[in-house]
Computed example of a mutant assay.
Amino acid sequence: MKPVLHIISDRNRHRLPLLQALVESAKGGADVIQIRDKKSPACETYSLVRQLQNHLQERNLVSQIFVNDRADIAITTDISGVHLASKSLPIASVVRLRKLADWSGQIGCSVHELDEAILAEEAGADYVTFGHIFASESHPGVPPRGVYALRRVVDALSIPVIAIGGIDHTNVETVLETGCSGIAVIGAVLNTTDPLNAVKKLKGAMEKSEFLPKVAFLQKTRQGDHENGCMRKG
């Protein structure tokens, strides 16, 4: 049971062409790649997901693909999950949609307070992402929540908690000490000229940690199979 690494795409924060950067991240060992592009039309996001799927399959890479907000794209491409934001469909509605579509993907959501995290679990979320933990380019001028708040969320929930915000190989040990299930990053990997080695450096720091997740993040071993637990089905 090891903590997982999520890489989240950002069209404004990458050095290499975005698709190339994501593929290189997968080569480096990213566990999850989340496509997040809130301003692009659905057809463009769909196309990027399909392209990434094809590249990973051609190279026999095992990174899971998630998409931000777009449950319709997650279902039609049969990827591993959808990640919901504050303005997305309600979690409970997506849980019902998953059941109607007979889709086995995970449903995650972003939370910023303990109460939000508890409500997300009650609504049926399979995991939450909590942050930002440290000062982050994504939230300039907004005070970080810190590792103490992260620990409170981890302690209160029985589903995986992924930490996000200002995390890199220099501070990941402090984050993992909370018992969180993994971390999510953007700039620490994509805003470099060598995403592959940036991922390897992060994964190396994570693997050296003596701290284990309180709850393991669900991971597919191959299409249709899962490890580290059972999928909630609505």
Rank of each mutant, 00 (worst) to 15 (best):
G187F: 01
K27C: 06
A135Y: 02
V172P: 01
T77F: 09
V82Y: 02
G165K: 11
H83P: 07
R96G: 02
G229L: 05
L157P: 08
F66I: 03
H83K: 07
A135V: 11
K203C: 02
T45R: 06
G165E: 00
K99C: 05
L5H: 04
E210N: 12
G182I: 12
L89G: 02
A205S: 11
V154A: 10
I164Q: 00
P195I: 01
D115G: 02
V95D: 03
R152I: 05
E116F: 03
M1S: 03
R222M: 07
E207P: 05
V172R: 04
R96A: 12
F66L: 06
F130W: 00
G166M: 08
D10N: 11
S158L: 12
A163R: 13
I162P: 12
R151G: 09
S88T: 08
I7L: 14
L119W: 06
G28K: 13
S40A: 15
R59D: 15
L97I: 13
A42Y: 15
L114E: 09
V185L: 06
K38I: 09
S110Q: 07
N191F: 08
I79C: 04
A30L: 04
D31I: 14
M206T: 01
L196T: 07
T221S: 13
K38P: 11
Q34L: 08
C230M: 02
T221Y: 15
N228E: 03
D126V: 05
G146N: 13
D69H: 15
T192P: 02
D69F: 12
P213L: 07
Q34Y: 14
V32R: 14
G224D: 00
T45P: 00
V4E: 06
H169E: 00
I162Y: 12
R232H: 00
S86T: 09
V147D: 07
A101M: 10
S93T: 05
Q20A: 13
R96M: 04
S158A: 15
Q219E: 02
S25N: 12
L190R: 03
L100R: 07
K27S: 12
D155M: 13
R15H: 09
C180I: 12
V189L: 04
S25R: 07
A184H: 15
S181W: 08
T193V: 11
M231T: 08
N228V: 04
V111E: 00
G229P: 05
V62G: 10
L202G: 03
N60V: 05
G146K: 01
S209I: 03
L176I: 02
T221G: 07
K203F: 03
Q20G: 10
P90Q: 02
N197Y: 14
E58S: 14
E177Q: 07
R98T: 07
V215R: 12
F134A: 04
L150S: 06
I79N: 06
G81Q: 01
Q34N: 08
S47Q: 08
E173C: 13
V32S: 09
G234E: 03
L114M: 05
L190F: 07
R232A: 09
D126K: 11
A42F: 13
I162C: 09
E44Y: 04
Y46V: 01
E137H: 11
D10L: 14
G81S: 02
V49R: 10
V215N: 10
H14Q: 08
H55Q: 15
V82L: 01
L5C: 10
Y127H: 15
G131K: 14
N228Q: 06
A123M: 04
